[in-house]
């Protein structure tokens, strides 16, 4: 994490996006037309979880694409955030889904009913 995120304009945009929605996915493309297999896989998991989420397409903005990598010091996309915190990318989301940890996380945050 950057110490003073708000000093970079794109970080303010990212912070606003994270404040706006509990579950936020920065991805390539959109849920209907994902432009990358890893982004598609995370969308698939979120759809199965039946949790409300919002997505932002980094292919629409080079500033956002670079900004989100710098914001969390995480070099790859997709990136899933829950309540403002980075959960991870495709590998982590898929592992957490399969192990049930993702459901536990969403339940703890009050986003889905307890399993």
């Amino acid at each position: 994490m950057n110490d003073q995120p708000s000093e970079t304009p794109i970080f303010s945009v990212i912070e606003a996006a994270l404040a706006n929605d509990d579950v936020v996915l920065f991805m390539k493309g959109n849920p209907q037309y994902p432009q990358c297999g890893f982004s598609a896989a995370v969308v698939d998991v979120l759809n199965r979880m039946a949790v409300p989420y919002n997505t932002h397409d980094v292919l629409q903005s080079a500033e956002l694409r670079d900004g989100i990598k710098a914001y969390s010091d995480w070099p790859t996309i997709p990136q899933l955030y829950v309540k403002g915190e980075l959960v991870g990318g495709c590998d982590i989301v898929r592992e957490m889904y399969e192990s049930g940890e993702l459901n536990t996380l969403f339940a703890e945050k009050g986003l889905v009913a307890e399993a």
Partner: peptide, 27 residues
């Protein structure tokens, strides 16, 4: 944690991830 493990790999690979490797899935 999962995040910390992956960060350790990112750190080890450095510029390889930026410039050369388009996609790397990891277990």
């Amino acid at each position: 944690s999962r995040i910390e493990r992956q960060r350790a790999v990112h750190k080890a690979l450095g510029d390889l991830l930026e410039a050369t490797v388009h996609a790397l899935s990891m277990d």
